[in-house]
Amino acid sequence: MSDAHEHIDKLMQELRRGTITIGALSQLYEPQYGYSLVTTLKEKGVQVEPGTLYPLLRRLEKQGVLESKWDTNETRPRKYYVLSQTGKEVFDLLRKEWQSIVESMNNLMRERGE
């Protein structure tokens, strides 16, 4: 049994790694700072470590998918991220790809379930 758990852990890690980016992008039509994004995602059932998300946000910013701005008006300064123009285009395409993956995967899963 513990063997199965080990496999599951590894596979889930890979699966999450692939979905975190798309999950984060989906919530960034409106500017959010890192920790608020962690909370939003958690509320919607997507667990993500801040230690994974923060570096990811920086990387996406560097790639030009996200833009960022420091907001210094609040109690403590926070860096807000939002989809850039390119980012919006990317995400629209990504959403379609995701839908088709979900459909295909659902089909595959159904076959086994019978």
């Binding site: 890192g34 920790y35 801040p50 923060y54 420091w70 403590r76 300064p77 926070r78 860096k79």
Partner: peptide, 10 residues
């Protein structure tokens, strides 16, 4: 700066 902010939020 970002990391300090995160830690305080947490």
């Amino acid at each position: 700066d970002e990391l300090s902010g995160l830690i305080e939020d947490m």
